[in-house]
Design a protein around this nucleic acid. Structure first.
Lengths: 138, 138
DNA sequence: TCGCATAGTTTCCTTTTCGTGCGTATGGCA
DNA sequence: TGCCATACGCACGAAAAGGAAACTATGCGA
């Protein structure tokens, strides 16, 4: 949080001088972040942002590596948190659509920075890992 | 990835027309993201960004809720990935400092968007959850 | 001489996570 | 008369995550 304020206000002010966020809000935010920063959530968010409305199995194919169970769980949680809307067409065989809500699209945009970072620096991360392995072999 | 390109280029172009990232790079990026989006990593990143250089136990106190074991693991992984530098002062009792690298600071900045999102919208998330509980009680 | 401080490591144990496989409803197709 | 397709829910078990506590080394102060 305070890190966020830093970036937003773009200043080097004394930390002690900054207004404190209430601990309750702080813990809520942490909780929300911990859930939302989940690996599958991020990936589902991305494919929905990319492709718009998708069916259950389409998401499953696009995310790749996710099991049906985790796909169900992830989509449920995202629906619960208001990130996606779930539309059931009561036909047989079943047909269910998922779409990002405005909240979901905002979150996806917020994650862009992280995706960019990963794209930009994953080479450096790999290099760091190689160097680390070298060092610890001694 | 393509979502990132979208944001960066700020266009509504056909997805098919966009240059594809190689699957190898794609999977690397996913792997890096999955590791880096870890709950403890994010929190450690935040306190180090806030406070600059910190000792092991200082990080432990500031992160709050983390066990010694997880703190060790998290810091090791972050060092391995080149996010922090670890400086050992060979004295007794031991004294070890941790500082964000440039890479770590960049990542921290990239996460700012997510922190901001959480701060801005956690109320809406809570509301969505309450509404969801209502709905499923039927 | 006792024990405290520091940054871990290691062991043991519990909890959580996750994959796999099976069941389900039913209209349409062979 | 089967059997497939779709979007799950459920149960079992393996694997991993994670917490608690003990143990390390050792100079210094009481």
């Amino acid at each position: 949080m305070r890190a966020v304020r830093n970036a937003v206000e773009a200043v080097h002010m004394s930390y002690a001088a900054m207004p404190e966020v209430s601990p309750a809000v702080e813990s809520l935010v942490r909780q929300v972040i911990a859930q939302v920063a989940d690996k599958w959530t991020m990936l589902v968010l991305e494919v929905l942002e990319e492709h718009g409305t998708l069916r259950f199995s389409q998401v499953g194919r696009l995310v790749e590596g996710i099991s049906q169970k985790m796909l169900t769980n992830t989509l449920r949680e995202m629906e619960r948190d208001g990130l996606v809307t779930r539309t059931v067409h009561p036909v047989i065989p079943p047909h269910v659509d998922y779409t990002l809500t405005e909240l979901g699209r905002e979150l996806s945009a917020a994650f862009c920075g992280v995706w960019l970072w990963a794209e930009t620096y994953h080479g450096q991360v790999m290099a760091a890992r190689a160097a680390f392995r070298e060092r610890e072999r001694a």
